[in-house]
Simulated scan of single mutants.
Amino acid sequence: MSRIANLPLELPNGVSLDQQGDRITVKGPKGEISLSVPETVLVSVEDNTVSVQPSEKAKTYAMAGTIRSLLGNHVHGVSQGFEIVLELVGVGYRAQVQGKNLNLTLGFSHPIDFTIPEGVTVEARSPTEIAVQGHDRQSVGQVAADIRALRPPEPYKGKGVKYKDERIQRKEAKKK
């Protein structure tokens, strides 16, 4: 059984945690995130330390660990932020940000306009590199996965949109 809920969570300078009923709001220099806590989990704040405790029932231990992990992600997000870097691999594949749209040329007969959602910043560092940044880990990961799903990497030549640290398992071509 995981013991992540037993670890205290330290709040860095500039990050505040407000608790009102079952709603917890984490505020920091990068933004603000709210989290709904079930009534079976007790969250207490003392000085700059947050502790999460389950109720007596055995089923609430897993939920306490989940809430502790989510709070840790929110604290990290509002203080430092999250970033996922994507690479475009292929001849003629390129990306360009224009306002609230990400224009992609991915080898189709038409360009793709991807609308950037609120709370997430997309930056084209070069024509073949895209950085997705934000303070909410879930939304940053979802936007990066949506962009990758437009043209996932294929196993024969490795062409497509891939994560920067992703390794593509290559297949051997068919032999005569």
Results as ranks from 00 to 15, higher is better:
Asn103Leu: 15
Asn103Phe: 02
Leu104His: 00
Leu104Gly: 02
Thr105Leu: 13
Phe108Glu: 12
Ser109Trp: 10
Ser109Gln: 07
Ile112Leu: 02
Asp113Ile: 06
Asp113Thr: 04
Phe114Gly: 04
Thr115Tyr: 07
Thr115Trp: 01
Thr115Ile: 10
Thr115Gln: 10
Ile116Cys: 07
Pro117Asp: 09
Pro117Ser: 06
Val120Trp: 10
Thr121Ile: 11
Glu123Ile: 14
Ala124Gly: 05
Arg125Glu: 13
Pro127Val: 07
Pro127Met: 00
Glu129His: 09
Glu129Met: 10
Ile130Lys: 08
Ala131Leu: 13
Gln133Asp: 00
Gln133Thr: 15
Gln133Cys: 15
Gly134Asp: 14
Gly134Ala: 12
His135Tyr: 07
Asp136Thr: 00
Arg137Tyr: 11
Arg137Pro: 00
Gln138Ile: 14
Ser139Ile: 03
Ser139Thr: 07
Gly141Met: 04
Gly141Asn: 14
Ala144Arg: 02
Ala144Tyr: 01
Ala145Ile: 00
Ala145Gln: 14
Asp146Arg: 10
Asp146Val: 02
Arg148Leu: 11
Leu150Thr: 00
Arg151Pro: 02
Pro152Tyr: 11
Pro153Asp: 03
Pro153Cys: 08
Pro155Asn: 08
Lys157Thr: 12
Gly158Ile: 03
Gly158Asn: 01
Gly158Arg: 02
Gly158Lys: 04
Lys159Val: 11
Lys159Arg: 15
Gly160Cys: 01
Val161Thr: 03
Lys164Leu: 12
Asp165Ile: 05
Asp165Glu: 10
Glu166Phe: 11
Arg167Pro: 05
Ile168Phe: 02
Ile168Trp: 03
Lys171Leu: 14
Glu172Tyr: 05
